[in-house]
Amino acid sequence: MGRKSTVDRLPPEVRNRIQKHLRDNRLTLVELIADLHEQFPDLAQKGELPSWSSLQRYNQGIREIVAHERQMMVAAEALVGELGDNFDAKSGALLAQAVTTLASKRALQAVEDAANGEVMDISDVLDLARAAKTVQEARSLNLKERRSVADEARRKLLEEQSEKLKAMGSKGGVTEDTKRAIREALGIV
């Protein structure tokens, strides 16, 4: 939060090239700097390209994000392998938990940065508010889906029980009053 990194302040084409190379992880930082000097000589001449240390700091952030993405991908693959391709309540719960974890991590980082004296921009506060809203929506959607599934299961169970009561007839001395009492106890209308 606070002041943007040197890389974040670069023109988009330079920033995109840096991000691509860092994701590909094929060049050392020294080779990356050489590539940037070759591709953007005017910025190099003005001294506006990032230093090795600023690229190193930026790379650490990229690596953390990539590591979290890999963890989520492994979890998603394990979930699909275990539960199949159908998106159900369990996979919805995993998604909601993933969003919660990522948003919480970002919020804690913002608090830590603020404690270290970095000033939060209003855009940073808005981003955190949006993340909190997204987390709440994901959890709410997951809860609605689970309730919907439970309601449907209850409806089907009541239908089955009602049909069995109708088919029962007067077997074994079961009177209409007894069936009515059973219907009321089960909530069958």
Rank of each mutant, 00 (worst) to 15 (best):
residue 124 D to N: 02
residue 62 I to K: 12
residue 88 D to F: 08
residue 129 A to E: 09
residue 187 G to Y: 00
residue 57 R to S: 11
residue 166 K to E: 15
residue 103 A to V: 04
residue 174 V to F: 10
residue 2 G to P: 10
residue 151 D to W: 05
residue 32 L to D: 00
residue 95 L to V: 11
residue 118 E to L: 07
residue 50 P to Y: 11
residue 144 K to P: 03
residue 20 K to Y: 13
residue 72 M to C: 04
residue 109 Q to A: 14
residue 12 P to S: 04
residue 174 V to A: 06
residue 65 I to Y: 07
residue 56 Q to Y: 15
residue 45 Q to S: 15
residue 132 A to T: 05
residue 126 L to W: 02
residue 48 E to N: 10
residue 149 V to N: 11
residue 17 R to D: 01
residue 188 I to D: 01
residue 147 R to F: 12
residue 126 L to Q: 11
residue 4 K to H: 13
residue 117 G to F: 08
residue 130 R to T: 07
residue 4 K to I: 04
residue 137 E to Q: 14
residue 70 R to D: 07
residue 142 N to Q: 15
residue 120 M to P: 04
residue 23 R to K: 06
residue 45 Q to A: 15
residue 51 S to D: 09
residue 16 N to C: 02
residue 78 A to I: 06
residue 119 V to K: 15
residue 17 R to P: 00
residue 63 R to W: 04
residue 43 L to G: 05
residue 183 R to A: 01
residue 137 E to D: 15
residue 125 V to H: 06
residue 179 K to V: 00
residue 3 R to S: 15
residue 96 A to N: 06
residue 102 L to E: 14
residue 28 T to P: 00
residue 139 R to D: 10
residue 153 A to K: 10
residue 88 D to S: 13
residue 50 P to W: 11
residue 47 G to K: 06
residue 151 D to Q: 12
residue 29 L to S: 02
residue 148 S to C: 02
residue 85 D to F: 12
residue 72 M to K: 00
residue 176 E to F: 06
residue 155 R to D: 14
residue 140 S to C: 10
residue 19 Q to M: 14
residue 161 Q to Y: 11
residue 149 V to T: 14
residue 7 V to S: 03
residue 185 A to K: 10
residue 189 V to S: 13
residue 160 E to Q: 13
residue 170 S to I: 07
residue 185 A to P: 03
residue 38 E to Q: 07
residue 165 L to F: 05
residue 58 Y to V: 08
residue 61 G to W: 13
residue 48 E to F: 02
residue 24 D to M: 12
residue 86 N to G: 12
residue 144 K to W: 14
residue 81 G to E: 03
residue 124 D to L: 01
